[in-house]
């Protein structure tokens, strides 16, 4: 039997920083302010269901657009020469070296009234209010999270053995068939880890919506943040519901993804 000793530090880490906080949240979510067992926090949490579903919807849209943009990009990258590939990876990661807030703020300046984009549009005779709607929030999210979709898909695609593609060609597949039967099924694990890395943070982040959205675009993360000031119980209940919802979505996706990859 292999020694389990090396895993002990990680176990301690997990217990302190994952398990204990999780248990605390569960306890808080099922107690009232006096510390008695109660479903009150969940009843209170129900009030915010519209915000909750809107957050999931915005996260879903952002995630979908990320896939549509990232997939072709990753495919093109993986077919390039190795030096070009490295260059692409570099160009994609460089913006991530900058502070998250600064990048969102750059979008604010680009999109605000009398900002460069608004000016250009009004020269063309289009007067639009670019800021403060759900579309801008999705734009900000896609911009923020796109690298987290491109990189996992690219990593998986660049590992696809060229011999497999040649074999398919030898057996008479055209390029559409090659894509459908070989490349796509093999890239599914990349898409799935991309979705995990984009959807989960997109559903819970609120900075993007705070800066680019209007008053209607409040996200569930914002509610949790504010409600924790005075009511940790309801805040915990909402966090717990969000965690469970995301977990269920990920499980469904994984089952679906496994079948896809096998067939």
């Amino acid at each position: 039997m292999k020694s389990r000793k090396p895993s002990i530090p990680y176990l301690i880490w997990m217990v302190i920083f994952t398990l204990i906080p999780l248990v605390t949240i569960v306890i808080y979510a099922f107690t009232d302010k006096q510390g008695n067992f109660s479903f009150e926090p969940f009843k209170n949490a129900f009030f915010y269901s519209n915000v909750f579903f809107r957050s999931l919807w915005i996260a879903f849209l952002s995630c979908l657009i990320c896939i549509l943009l990232a997939y072709p990009m990753a495919y093109i990258m993986s077919r390039c020469k190795e030096r070009t590939q490295n260059l692409f990876v570099m160009l994609i990661t460089i913006p991530m070296w900058m502070n998250f807030l600064l990048r969102i703020y750059a979008w604010v300046i680009l999109l605000q009234n009398n900002g460069p984009i608004d000016m250009a549009l009004s020269l063309l005779g289009i007067n639009a209010n670019l800021m403060g709607n759900a579309g801008t929030v999705v734009l900000g999210m896609v911009y923020e999270f796109l690298p987290f979709m491109i990189l996992p898909i690219y990593t998986v695609m660049s590992k696809i053995d060229n011999n497999l593609i040649e074999a398919a060609q030898d057996l008479g597949s055209n390029s559409v068939q090659i894509f459908k039967k070989v490349i796509f099924p093999l890239s599914v694990p990349g898409i799935i880890s991309g979705i995990t890395m984009v959807f989960v943070p997109a559903a819970s982040t609120f900075l993007v919506a705070q800066y680019l959205g209007g008053t209607e675009d409040i996200m569930i993360g914002d509610i949790i943040d504010k409600i924790f000031w005075t009511d940790q119980n309801t805040g915990s209940a909402i966090s717990l519901i969000l965690m469970v919802a995301i977990l269920i979505l990920l499980i469904i996706m994984n089952i679906f993804g496994d079948e896809e990859a096998i067939s």
């Binding site: 209170n44 009030f47 915010y48 519209n50 915000v51 008053t215 409040i218 509610i223 504010k226 409600i227 000031w229 005075t230 009511d231 309801t234």
Partner: peptide, 14 residues
């Protein structure tokens, strides 16, 4: 009263 005010404020915003 203060926590009630805070809760209602969050509700008004959501």
């Amino acid at each position: 009263i203060y926590s009630y005010m805070q809760e209602q404020f969050v509700k008004a915003q959501s």
